[in-house]
């Protein structure tokens, strides 16, 4: 909370110094403010905040890279004369907990290479995914696990 407040304040100060309060100057000020907070995170006591934002940025970058990879993979299969689809249903054990993180994981899984979420087990301990064009069940599990690790870092479980 404190970190977010500091960051908004620094963004506003930057915009005021530039003499123009607009979406662009506020956004630029927010980024510069975030860099300042990262530099002085110990003394300002905002370590949790900077780590949270860093983890969120990591999630977004990794997700976008996977999304592009997933689309090229799927487009090649759609155009291949004899695609090796090898469909299977794989169980992925989860460490992630909570309604919102699990919903996000199920949603993001649908955009990862070769996986679509099917269901959670009744105890929510694992996710069942339909895998397409994956060489092995292990490869499909890895794909989902990687995104789960990013989400765990964002919710602060790791």
């Amino acid at each position: 909370m404190r970190g977010a407040g500091f960051n908004l304040l620094l963004g506003l100060v930057w915009a005021l110094f530039l003499g123009e309060v607009s979406l662009r100057t506020l956004a630029l000020g927010w980024v510069i403010g975030f860099l300042i907070l990262t530099l002085f995170r110990r003394s300002l006591g905002v370590t949790a905040y900077t780590r949270g934002i860093g983890a969120t940025a990591g999630l977004i970058v990794s997700f976008l890279a996977e999304l592009v990879r997933a689309n090229i993979h799927m487009a090649l299969m759609a155009l291949h004369p004899r695609p090796r689809l090898n469909p299977m249903i794989v169980e992925v054990p989860l460490r992630l907990q909570g309604d919102l993180p699990l919903t996000l994981l199920a949603s993001l899984t649908g955009l990862l290479p070769g996986t679509v979420a099917l269901a959670f087990s009744p105890d929510r301990g694992s996710l069942y995914v339909h895998a397409l064009g994956m060489n092995s069940a292990q490869a499909a599990r890895q794909s989902v696990r990687q995104m789960e690790r990013h989400l765990l870092r964002v919710v602060g479980g790791d």
Binding site: L67, A70, N71, M74, A75, A78, L85, P87, G110, L111, G114, V116, H130, L132
Partner: peptide, 10 residues
């Protein structure tokens, strides 16, 4: 199931 892969991602 495999058609859903194509329609959701692509």
């Amino acid at each position: 199931y495999s058609r859903l892969h194509a329609s959701s991602k692509l």
